[in-house]
Design a binder for these strands. Structure first.
Lengths: 198, 198
DNA sequence: CGAGAGAGAGAACGCTCTTTCTAGTGGTAC
DNA sequence: GTACCACTAGAAAGAGCGTTCTCTCTCTCG
């Protein structure tokens, strides 16, 4: 169903293809305001795209939402969290702790939007396809944490990753509430948790 | 058209007044499914109430949502968490830890609905009146935690309560994802946190 | 008894949403 | 050069939303 990157035959040879513009607009709107609060009209407007064009690329709003979540994993999970943690930490334990340094900068951004996977899961429910996909993407985040923990030689890394993830999600929600120090608090508890699994 | 149990004289002294039925219906629907996913029609249907009756008691859906949040504080924050923690813990530290025992039972319920304050905050945004109210109700929860921490003679109770709240919210989100052990993990980290503030 | 108030049923308004459809435009490939 | 294709513009279908309104019923209180 994905009809992935259709580079050739670009028609308008516009700087960015219609599909790309739709995805970018979806990303900005859905990540900032949620799913139900954003209509497809608004997406089309911001993308500068006609109705038929959006529905040629995505058969329904739901499928557009799924594409948004996939993009969120690329940009946020992999592009921001995983890659930056790798870059900042010189050893596995430092890579783990770097997650909260990344969070700290992220929490201080004016356009801080919280975690789209949590947002969508809670907004749509676990039964909805988008909520279900969100649970899966949250699993992936935990897998990354577990990978770092394995490299660090910690004990019981599955349980460790689940506890670590509690700290990540809790500090994100606290930041959404307005506590800009949430990452610092999370990091302090994270250190204690590492101590328990060493 | 359930034509719910229409007790004989329905006006002045029905078993439960129209207002109560509206509030109960709102509570069940909003807490389980969120705000935007539930229409006033559905609330009226479940309450067995006419349109005019709902709008006589609440000038708008938004005001009904605010009434729901207030009720949530009564039933959940005070009725479940605070009162039960008081009842279960014989000293202040045990009262704090009892929160996660309460959570453990709560997480195992079939109708576990996560925290309405978090849900509404993330769904509606902090600008929306309902999101704003949710932030306030979350503050109250933290105040209760801080009160217990003060009684326990812990250091730096404001910061302690914020960290503790991160554990509470993180484990709630993890439970919403499907981890029924989230309360146990939260409690283990909570013990470590107490140790740091003793 | 008669007035008033709370409640019910249901129509209707105006708006928004998702989705479908029609018609037309312009670039590309054969 | 003609057929194709992605695209645009816009109307419209069809449903649902929050809200207002009218009309009727019946209990309660004076």
């Amino acid at each position: 169903m994905l009809e992935t990157q259709r580079q050739p035959a670009e028609t308008g040879h516009s700087a960015r293809s219609a599909r790309e513009r739709i995805l970018d607009a979806s990303y900005e709107l859905f990540s900032q305001r949620g799913i139900r609060a954003v209509g497809v009209n608004e997406v089309m407007e911001r993308a500068g795209v006609a109705t038929a064009t959006l529905y040629r690329h995505f058969p329904s709003k739901d499928s557009l939402v799924l594409a948004f979540l996939e993009m969120r994993e690329q940009r946020w999970t992999h592009g921001l969290v995983e890659a930056e943690a790798q870059r900042r930490g010189s050893d596995p334990e430092e890579r783990l702790l770097a997650i909260f340094d990344i969070f700290d900068e992220w929490f201080h951004r004016d356009d801080f939007e919280a975690c789209s996977f949590i947002n969508v899961l809670l907004e749509m429910g676990a039964q909805h396809p988008a909520g279900d996909a969100s649970v899966e993407y949250l699993d992936h985040i935990r897998s990354i944490v577990r990978g770092f923990a394995d490299e660090a030689g910690l004990r019981d890394t599955e349980s460790f990753a689940r506890s670590w993830h509690i700290l990540m999600k809790g500090s994100i929600v606290s930041a959404a509430e307005g506590d800009v120090e949430a990452a610092r608090r999370g990091k302090a508890m994270a250190r204690l948790l590492i101590g328990q699994h060493r």
